[in-house]
Amino acid sequence: MQAEELSIPMQIREWQADGKDQVFDSETLFKYIDGGAELYLAYGFRQAFSRKYAGPGNSAIVLDIYDMGTAADAFGVFTSEREDEDAHIGQGSEFGGGLLRFWKGCKFVTILNDAGGESADQAVIELGRTVDQALPATGPEPDLLKCLPQQGLDKKKIRFFHQPLLLDKHYFVAQENVLGLGAETDCVLAEYPINKDDSLVLLLVRYENPTRAKAAYEHFIEIYMPEAKAGLARMENNQWTMAALDRNLLTIVFEAPDEQRAIDMQKAVKK
C-alpha cells in the first residue's frame, strides 16, 4: 500500500494530516477498533492504513484503507454495512452520516467526518475521489453473485461473507452454526422485496465440496425444520422456507409468502 499512500494528499481543503500515519495488522487491529476488528478478520484482512486530518474547531477526518487480500472480500466487507446512497466512488460506494465507504480492487476504504458539517462532508467526498484515483487496480465481484436471480433483487441488500458472525448480523438463523460456515465457505444473502415491510430472503452457500454441503444441508433440516418435505416447510409466521442442494451449492429461501414462491425462487437460482 505504501506507494499509493504516498500519493494521497497531506491536506484536503482546510484539513491537514495530523500526527503519524498508522499501520495495523491482524494482531494490532484490535487496538485501533476494538471489537470492530472482528468484522475485518471475518474476511481476509491483511493490513490497515490510517491517517487523521485535523481541521477547524477540533474537527477531524479519518481515512482508513483496509487491504482485504482479495477483491471479493473487499466487496464483502463493503456490503456488510451497506445502507446509504451511492457516492459513485470506486467500484461501489455509499455516503451517509459523514461516513464514506467504498471498495476498489482488494481495498476497502472508509473516510469519516466525525464532527459533522457540510464543508467537512465535501472534503470527505473530495478525499474519497483522490484515494480512488490513487488505487488503480480493480477486481471482480465474487463469482457467487452470478447465481442470484436478478428479477426483483434489491442490490443494496446483497451481503457477501464467509463466517457465521455476518449471517447472525443480517439474518439470525440459529444460535449454533447450523450451516457449518467458516473461512472456506462463500455466502451470499440477498433480499427481494415483496411489499413495503416484507422481503423474500435468499441465502446461497458454496462449500468446499459436495460432502460438506450435504452434511450442512442435513444438519440444517434436522435443527431448523425437521418436518420439511422435499426441503420445504411452512413456518410459524405462515411464511415458507425451502432448502435445496446442488452439488456444493446450498440454497435456502426464507420468508417466502407461499409455497410456490419458495419453489420458484429456488429454481431461479443459476447453478
Partner: peptide
Amino acid sequence: AKGPHHFDRRY
C-alpha cells in the same frame, strides 16, 4: 451502529 468505529451520529 455503522462504520469501522461503530458510530454514526444519526443513530
